[in-house]
Simulated assay, not measured.
Amino acid sequence: MRAILADDEELALRYLEKQLLAIGSVEVIGKYADVEEALEAVAANPPDVVFLDIEMPVLSGVEAAELLAQRAPGTDIVFVTAFEEYAVKAFELNAVDYILKPVEKERLARTVARLAERKGHPPIPPASRAVMIRSFQVLEMDLAKTEPIPWRTTKAQELFAYLLHHRAQPVRKDALLEVLWPEVDIKRGYTQLYTTIYQIRKTMESLGADVRIVNYEKGYRLELNDVKIDAEEWEKGVMETKLEPGTLELHLGLLELYRGDYLAEYDYLWAESERQRLKTICFRHVMRLAEWLDSEGKRMEAVSVYYRALRMFPYSEEVHFSLMRQYAKLGDWSSVDKGYAALERMMRDEFDSEVPQPIRSWYREHKRT
Results as ranks from 00 to 15, higher is better:
residue 2 R to P: 10
residue 4 I to G: 13
residue 6 A to V: 01
residue 20 L to I: 01
residue 20 L to H: 07
residue 22 A to Y: 05
residue 29 I to P: 04
residue 31 K to Q: 12
residue 31 K to T: 02
residue 34 D to T: 02
residue 35 V to P: 06
residue 36 E to M: 05
residue 42 V to Q: 12
residue 44 A to T: 01
residue 56 M to V: 01
residue 57 P to N: 10
residue 59 L to R: 15
residue 68 L to M: 06
residue 71 R to P: 01
residue 78 V to A: 09
residue 78 V to I: 08
residue 80 V to I: 09
residue 81 T to H: 11
residue 94 N to I: 00
residue 98 Y to H: 00
residue 99 I to S: 11
residue 102 P to Y: 04
residue 104 E to D: 11
residue 107 R to W: 05
residue 113 A to P: 03
residue 115 L to T: 01
residue 115 L to Q: 05
residue 117 E to G: 04
residue 122 P to R: 04
residue 134 R to C: 09
residue 134 R to T: 07
residue 134 R to Y: 11
residue 135 S to P: 09
residue 135 S to Y: 06
residue 136 F to R: 05
residue 139 L to G: 13
residue 140 E to W: 00
residue 160 F to L: 06
residue 161 A to R: 12
residue 163 L to W: 02
residue 165 H to R: 07
residue 169 Q to P: 04
residue 170 P to M: 01
residue 172 R to H: 13
residue 180 L to S: 12
residue 181 W to F: 15
residue 182 P to Q: 10
residue 184 V to A: 12
residue 185 D to L: 04
residue 189 G to S: 09
residue 193 L to M: 11
residue 195 T to F: 14
residue 198 Y to S: 13
residue 203 T to S: 11
residue 210 D to N: 15
residue 214 V to H: 15
residue 214 V to M: 07
residue 223 E to M: 12
residue 224 L to E: 13
residue 226 D to H: 14
residue 228 K to H: 12
residue 228 K to D: 10
residue 228 K to F: 05
residue 229 I to E: 10
residue 232 E to K: 08
residue 237 G to M: 06
residue 245 P to D: 12
residue 247 T to M: 12
residue 250 L to E: 07
residue 253 G to I: 02
residue 257 L to W: 02
residue 257 L to D: 10
residue 257 L to R: 14
residue 269 L to D: 14
residue 273 S to C: 03
residue 273 S to M: 09
residue 277 R to T: 08
residue 278 L to C: 09
residue 280 T to G: 02
residue 284 R to P: 04
residue 285 H to G: 13
residue 287 M to Q: 10
residue 295 S to F: 03
residue 300 M to P: 00
residue 311 R to G: 10
residue 313 F to N: 08
residue 317 E to L: 07
residue 317 E to W: 04
residue 324 M to D: 11
residue 325 R to D: 09
residue 330 L to D: 12
residue 338 K to N: 14
residue 339 G to N: 08
residue 341 A to P: 08
residue 342 A to W: 01
residue 343 L to D: 10
residue 345 R to Q: 11
residue 347 M to R: 15
residue 348 R to L: 10
residue 349 D to H: 14
residue 353 S to Y: 05
residue 356 P to V: 03
residue 361 S to G: 03
residue 365 E to I: 03
residue 368 R to C: 02
residue 368 R to Y: 02
